[in-house]
Amino acid sequence: MPDNAPQSFSTTTDDVTLRGDHWPPADDAVSAQAPVLLLHGGGQTRHSWDRTAAALAARGRDVYTLDSRGHGDSDWAPHGDYALEAFVADLRAVLADLPSKPVIIGASLGGITGLCTVGEQPETAAALVMVDVVVNVEQQGIDRIKEFMTGHVDGFASLDDVADAIAAYNPERRRPKNLDGLRKNVRLHDDGRWYWHWDPAFIASGEGDEPRRHTDPARLAAAARTVIAPTLVVRGGKSDVVSDAGVDNMRELIPHAEIADVSGAGHMVAGDDNEVFAAAIEQFLDSHGL
């Protein structure tokens, strides 16, 4: 096994145990750079970051990927608590276990969890990267996410059906010929069907739409106004979740925020164009000496 192969870690909060992977620097030395914590979007798992984590570790960074509550290998919330405060409390617990302040990189739900945490407790992070999410997201894009997430809660008959559903949501991404990678995001149950590897209560909880049902826009706006850490908003050029108006609003809330546009990507930026995404991240980190 390579020296920098991912190693599992866990953090236990009041009600759940969170699990993730630690990707040590490729040179097996203690990195002088800030560690990186990658937070996935709603309905995803830490494995959505595998390529990004491997690339960052290969460049000498200490990297952590985390399954949020109700997702992947982390515990499901015992009382169906998937409100923003629960995700923020979980993140604070993980941050307390890290050796130093990390750069928080969060996609969608992970991004707004990071925003709230970094805004309300500025000392907890070295920098913040929000991936295709802003305080004011577009309802059309949110509706498509909701439709995709709720459309298959009864599972799939085969991995081919899983691939078909993903291709229908994101038709511009090439459908994989080898479907084994999908096993990281779905699980085969005793009834012979494949189910997403997240708690259905996550999308069924609360009022409104994902990601708004798991957020508090007023709280997020207030948090954004107090962010002092270097901040980057990475926008998918083909995203229907983040608009020009949403980006302009973020510039007003966080005047020092930088914007990177990955023109060939949709909402799933890292998966759509990981090479360009990783380059934007590295440029941002290097420019701030992180």
Rank of each mutant, 00 (worst) to 15 (best):
A5Y: 13
A5S: 13
S10I: 00
T17L: 06
L18Q: 08
H22A: 14
P25T: 02
P25C: 03
A26T: 08
A32G: 13
P35K: 01
L37C: 10
L38N: 03
T45I: 08
H47K: 03
R51H: 15
A55R: 12
L56T: 03
R59K: 12
R59E: 11
T65V: 00
L66V: 07
R69A: 09
S74P: 03
S74H: 06
A77I: 03
G80M: 00
D81H: 11
L84K: 04
A86I: 04
A86V: 11
R92M: 11
V94M: 08
A96G: 15
K101G: 11
K101T: 14
V103T: 03
I104W: 03
A107T: 13
S108C: 08
T113C: 01
G114S: 12
T117N: 09
E120H: 12
Q121M: 11
T124W: 08
A125G: 05
A126Y: 05
V133L: 03
V135N: 07
V137R: 09
K146L: 10
G151N: 09
D154W: 02
A157P: 05
P171H: 09
R173K: 15
P176F: 03
G181N: 12
L182R: 02
V186W: 00
G192K: 05
W198P: 05
A201L: 13
A201F: 00
I203H: 11
A204Y: 08
G206C: 01
G208E: 06
G208V: 02
R212Q: 09
R212C: 00
R219W: 01
A222T: 13
A223S: 04
S243R: 08
A245E: 15
I254N: 04
D261H: 14
V262G: 04
A265P: 11
D273H: 10
N274K: 10
E275T: 14
V276H: 15
I281G: 03
H288Y: 03
